[in-house]
Computed example of a mutant assay.
Amino acid sequence: MSHFSKLALVSMLSLTAATAEAAPALRGDITVTTQVVTVADMFDDAGPLAETAIFSAPAPGTTGKVDISAIRAAAARIGINSFEANGLSAVNVTRAGMIVDEAQLKDLVMADLSARGLLGPGVNTTVQFSRFIDPIQVSTGGVAVRLDGLRYTAGGREFSARFLLADNSRVLDLTGTIDMTVEMPHLAANLPAGTILLPEHIVMSPVPAGQANAYAFAPIEQLVGMALNRQSREGMLLRLSDVSAPLAVAKNDLVTIMYRRGPLTLTVKGQAITGASRGSSLQVLNLMSKRVISATAVAPGTVEVTGAPVTLAGL
Rank of each mutant, 00 (worst) to 15 (best):
L228K: 02
N229R: 13
N229D: 06
N229Y: 07
N229H: 04
N229W: 01
R230K: 15
R230I: 08
R230M: 12
Q231H: 05
S232V: 03
S232C: 07
S232G: 00
S232K: 08
S232H: 07
S232D: 00
R233E: 06
R233V: 08
E234M: 04
E234N: 09
G235I: 03
G235C: 09
M236I: 07
M236N: 08
L237H: 15
L237E: 01
L237C: 14
L237K: 12
L237P: 12
L238D: 15
L238T: 10
L238W: 02
L238E: 08
R239Q: 15
R239N: 09
L240Y: 11
L240E: 14
S241E: 14
S241P: 03
D242G: 09
D242H: 14
V243G: 01
V243Y: 06
V243N: 06
V243A: 03
S244Q: 10
S244F: 05
S244I: 03
S244Y: 04
A245R: 10
A245S: 13
A245I: 06
L247F: 08
L247M: 06
L247W: 07
L247K: 05
A248C: 15
A248I: 00
V249D: 03
V249W: 06
V249S: 08
V249A: 13
A250L: 02
A250F: 05
A250D: 05
A250T: 03
A250I: 10
K251N: 08
K251H: 11
K251T: 02
K251V: 04
N252I: 03
D253T: 00
D253M: 02
D253Q: 08
D253F: 08
L254D: 10
L254N: 07
V255F: 08
V255E: 10
V255Q: 14
V255K: 00
V255Y: 02
T256L: 10
I257Q: 08
I257D: 09
I257S: 02
M258L: 13
M258F: 14
M258I: 07
M258K: 15
Y259C: 00
Y259L: 12
Y259K: 05
R260L: 15
R260W: 13
R261A: 06
R261E: 12
R261Q: 09
R261L: 07
R261I: 05
R261K: 05
R261D: 07
G262R: 10
G262K: 07
P263A: 14
P263N: 15
P263F: 13
P263E: 12
P263W: 11
L264A: 05
T265D: 11
L266M: 09
L266A: 04
L266H: 12
V268I: 01
V268M: 01
K269L: 03
K269S: 06
K269R: 12
K269A: 04
